[in-house]
């Protein structure tokens, strides 16, 4: 399918461009064509594809689990119910293992992160050209189907987690306690500025690493899928070996997407646990 593009560079670029809606340079509102127009739109524009798939997958997750929650009873679970309860127990175990305090928010938060991120990552396993091609038939010029390859999405989640970390730090330790943690550690009090810089970097590194780890992994994975997809236009020998490569990378990617979802969830729990600990 790369054949319809002028060259492979354009193909790659096209696959990495979001469907962005915003105000164009001439003042009219509309969908941006190409990276330059997206840049001109500035902050007040929105990636329709990322939002659509992110919300859609989130809704799917909530619908599925809500269905299970409504049917939940003490009788022996069957089929889907069993699967959902297995996930719930797995997450409950993870939270109990990493989070020492009592907070009704942490477990649902962890579950939302794990399932949602997993589903968003899972979009990566759908052949890269399939959905953009279908959308193209409907007249949609750009479509990035994996929301977690959009830094807006990953930072949106990590910054929310970061806000919760700050909130619980202040709530559990008090504003003074939180400041003390940042200022009087690891060196004695008289070296406060150095402490503030060090701890500040540590604090800021949490959401940044959380978001960039997920984004980087998925972006790179998506990129490799795109590069493999390029081989299909290189004759039948390259095409067949590309098929095997795609299969291999997809199988390996199943591990990556699950792992990334799990890491995001676990680190969130750990950060919130650190924020909630008063004896420091």
């Amino acid at each position: 399918m790369a054949g319809s593009y002028a060259n492979s560079g354009e193909y790659i670029k096209h696959h990495l461009t979001n469907l962005t809606y915003g105000q164009k340079a001439d003042g009219s509102w509309g969908i941006a064509h190409g990276a330059d127009e997206i840049k001109e739109m500035g902050f007040w524009s929105i990636n329709l594809d990322s939002m659509l798939f992110s919300i859609g997958l989130g809704m799917f997750f909530l619908w599925l689990f809500h269905k299970a929650a409504k049917k939940a009873s003490t009788d022996a679970p069957t089929g889907l119910q069993n699967f959902i309860e297995m996930i719930v127990e797995f997450i409950d175990d993870s939270v109990r293992g990493s989070f020492s305090g009592k907070n009704p928010l942490v477990a649902p938060l962890a579950m939302t992160i794990f399932i949602w991120v997993f589903l968003m990552n899972f979009m990566d396993l759908i052949p890269v050209d399939l959905i953009p091609w279908l959308a193209g038939l409907l007249g949609v010029p750009y479509l990035k189907v994996v929301p977690s390859t959009d830094p807006n999405i990953t930072f949106g989640m990590s910054l929310t987690v970061f806000a919760l970390v700050i909130y619980y730090s202040i709530k559990m330790k008090g504003a003074g306690g939180f400041f003390a943690e940042l200022a009087f550690h690891p060196f004695p009090k008289f070296m406060m500025p150095i402490n503030l810089v060090l701890e500040g970097v540590t604090l800021i590194a949490k959401p940044v690493s959380l978001a960039l780890r997920l984004f980087g992994n998925l972006y790179a994975g998506e990129m490799i899928f795109i590069l493999i997809a390029l081989m299909y236009s290189g004759g039948w020998i390259l095409g067949i070996s590309g098929g095997f490569l795609q299969l291999g990378w997809a199988i390996f990617h199943i591990l990556i997407i699950t792992l990334q979802a799990f890491i995001f969830m676990t680190l969130t729990i750990v950060y919130l646990d650190m924020a909630s600990q008063t004896d420091h």
Partner: peptide, 21 residues
């Protein structure tokens, strides 16, 4: 490119977590 998607995602995230909770 950071744009309003960031804010959209944050709001969505909060709503989803609230619903889940």
């Amino acid at each position: 490119n950071f744009n309003a998607t960031l804010i959209g995602q944050m709001i969505t995230f909060v709503v989803f977590v609230w619903f889940c909770m």
